[in-house]
Amino acid sequence: MITTVPEIVTGVTRGDSDAWERAGSLLTTYYAQSNCPRVTLFSLTSRFSPSFPLTSHSDTSLKVTPCYLRDCDLLALANLGIKVAQDSVNQLFASEPLPELMAQIPLDTQLVDAPEQILDTDGALNQLWTALTKDPLTLKPKAAAAILARLRPATFPLFSRSDRLPWGEISDYLQFCQDLHDLLLADRGRLAHQLYYLHESLELPTWVSQIQLLQALVFSDYQADLAAHQELRRQEKATRKAERAAKKLRKKQAKQAKKQHKKLSEQEKSANLDSDLLSSASPFDNERAASGRHLAASEPADLGNSRSQLTGHGRHVRNDGEDGFISTDPVSL
């Protein structure tokens, strides 16, 4: 069951100018795509190459029996990523009572105009859905809905995950069709009328039905919001990365500044220590350092002899008499 009506649908329904402008931009971009699988699902025919715009699938001049899948139908489904066994589907639609059920739904019947008995729990749609999703085919809901949308493009919606999510938690295809039908009819068919005017103002091809237009609008709006959200997350991630890099750089710079400050402090401390040592040195140290020895050159030449005369020790070194001696004083040596 539909639990959330997309904001773009609500805005278009009430005639909001901003919503209409956004809807026009989104739909123009959507239907201008030449190889969009969702577009070619409805526009691709056997007489034209898969490019936009194409002749409507419902062209009566083709005289195609609606209960059979043609080659172009299979190609359109394959473009959407759906592969089905043609023989099995054709055999199923050729057997009773499917041909009669399909005959109850004219080819150009819009969903808003579909009779209530078709959408009832015992109606044609429910029987068709059961036949496609039960034995022997057992198709997935996305594939079964795509086949019905291809055969009755004005009546049945797509049922992919991207088509369901904008409307809330939806798991039942029949209920989804009934809810969309009621939404188109609500308020005397206001949404259906707005979609008609939107179709005419954009000059879209005639094969674009109301349900296709509605789903294209919701799908493109959902994709645009998703892309914007992803871009926002990317920017936030880039911002966080830049902040982490800046924080790391600040830590590195602070560490380098601390190291440099420590180095300068050590140098200043060493310089102060040297200054203290110089200021506390003896004044005689300079004189001793200048002479190179403790004894200066002015020391008497006979220092040893003079000292020996005082002490009475030493050896004779001068030949000036019997009292001569040679000094053994280490200083004189």
Rank of each mutant, 00 (worst) to 15 (best):
M1H: 12
T4W: 00
E7M: 13
I8R: 00
T10A: 15
G24W: 07
L26I: 07
C36N: 14
P37G: 02
P37N: 02
S43K: 06
L44Q: 08
T45L: 07
S49C: 14
P50Q: 05
S51M: 08
F52P: 10
S61G: 10
K63A: 10
T65S: 15
D73P: 04
A78C: 10
A78F: 10
L80V: 10
V84A: 04
A85V: 10
Q86H: 01
S88I: 08
V89N: 06
S95Y: 03
P97G: 03
P99I: 09
I118V: 11
L128N: 08
W129Y: 10
K134L: 04
K140V: 04
K142L: 03
A143F: 00
I147H: 02
A149D: 00
R152T: 07
A154W: 11
A154E: 09
F159R: 05
L165R: 02
L165N: 01
L165E: 02
G168C: 13
Y173S: 02
C177T: 06
Q178K: 03
L180C: 10
L185G: 03
R190F: 04
L191Q: 04
A192C: 05
L195G: 08
Y197E: 08
H199P: 08
E200L: 06
L202I: 05
W207A: 11
S209L: 06
Q210V: 05
I211F: 01
L217G: 04
D221R: 13
H229Q: 13
R233N: 13
R233L: 14
Q235S: 01
A238C: 05
A242G: 04
A246I: 05
K248N: 13
L249P: 01
K252W: 12
Q256M: 12
A257W: 10
K262F: 09
K262H: 11
E266L: 10
E266P: 03
N272Y: 02
D276L: 07
R293C: 09
A301E: 14
N305P: 03
L310T: 02
G312L: 06
H313V: 14
H316N: 14
N319T: 07
N319Q: 15
T328F: 09
L333D: 12
